[in-house]
Amino acid sequence: MIPVPGITLTGQATIHGAALFAPLSLSLDAGQWTCLLGGSGVGKSTLLRLICGLPTGAEFTGDIRASDGGDVSSRVAYMAQDDLLMPWATVSQNILLGAALRGDPRDHGRLAQILDRVGLTDHAAKKPSALSGGQRQRVALARTLMEDKPVILLDEPFSALDAQTRAAMQDLSAEVLRGKTVLIVTHDPIEAARLGDNIQIMSAEGLMDVTPPTGPIPRPVTSLDVLKTQADLLTRLRKVPT
């Protein structure tokens, strides 16, 4: 297995001279899930896009480094709220997209393994339009896994799903992404309470570290500790000036 680095982002961002977020420092511990929680427009997605090396429209001053000193943006895989499946390509072709775009040989053995892991073997030859929202998001997860990167960045990946599908996707993701360094941006307190080894609330003033519930992720929704953390997070979110 590829050694998994931690990631540290330190700095501030402005849009047309106005501060988007104040100087802050975000650490993603190696092999852990970090949940970044906050209202809309506080710059959560900007932070995630900066780590991906994607254009943001904001001006960032600071630096982003990996704990092993290596390059960051070449070692991340990205998954967004929109599944971003190519409607003209089959499930398999979508999962193999990265290899096609780089001109790498397609690894059909690994594809079969991953399809099996996310429960899509029977759907491999279908087009995305033939799938449900939850299945499509599983294809997106499979495509992320196929990239085999040590750092996974998830931008509100489950927010368009219904509650029971979302919970199932959280379980599946926690299982298949175990051991990777994961940043998940969300505005759902229960998602943060279930999945965060670290939980950070982001606001215009910076980051606030919140103690996560006990136990390994994905934590059960029935756990009293998880529900208490959810309530605590929602209370804090409502106090954050917007």
């Binding site: 990205y78 929109d82 990265g98 775009l101």
Partner: peptide, 16 residues
């Protein structure tokens, strides 16, 4: 979104 995804995959412009 497609272009962002392709970029994080380090896709070659002609292949994209």
């Amino acid at each position: 979104g497609y272009l962002d995804l392709a970029r994080t995959m380090q896709g070659h412009p002609m292949r994209i």
